[in-house]
Amino acid sequence: MWNEYSFGLAIAFACALIGFAALTRERDDLHKLLLIDLVETASLAVIALIGTDLAEALILPGLVVGIAELLALSQIYLTKEGYQQNPVKGLNIEVMMRSPAPVILSTILVVYGIILSGFTGGGIAGLGVVFFLMSRSFTGDFHVLEIASGISWALWVAAFFVFMFLPGWWYFALLGAAIGILLKVITKMSLVGAMWGETE
């Protein structure tokens, strides 16, 4: 009865046990956040053990939920401790500011992300944008990002309803959903890069 699945579950729950045990004794607020990131890994491992295509379809939402809540909590942490006004140095290495390397790397990531589209593409393209914004210490306009992500959300939900109620138009819905979710994830991720700089 000790198949591969049970063995994997044993490992994953042993990890969860260790992580939660450390969390019980932790008093520092930021260490708590890091440890929660650790136990998230264990829960993703439990999902991965299903080993079907469904597992992947469940991992992607699980991952994105984790990072979104992490960003919100880290921002609450900064405000409650009063660190919000402190400057962030960015990647203020002289070479980074001038050299074309960030541009080239970001371009590769963004192009590949657009080819992938969907969740994965959004994540990868977003990473490229974050890297670029960080290396150029950009202080940008937030509202544009928020509006863009709102529109892409609407596009994607519209595509979902086409899938459900007008299944004949599946091709249209597929492209709408893929592009909508790509834009949505990119804009959200580039928020991280824009927040790297100073408060407006």
Binding site: A68, L71, Q75, F142, G150, W153, K184, L191, M195, E200
Partner: peptide, 17 residues
Amino acid sequence: EPTILFIAFAIAAYIFR
């Protein structure tokens, strides 16, 4: 799932601003 993403990032952006 994108709704969770949207809400969480809205909180972060609001508090940041």
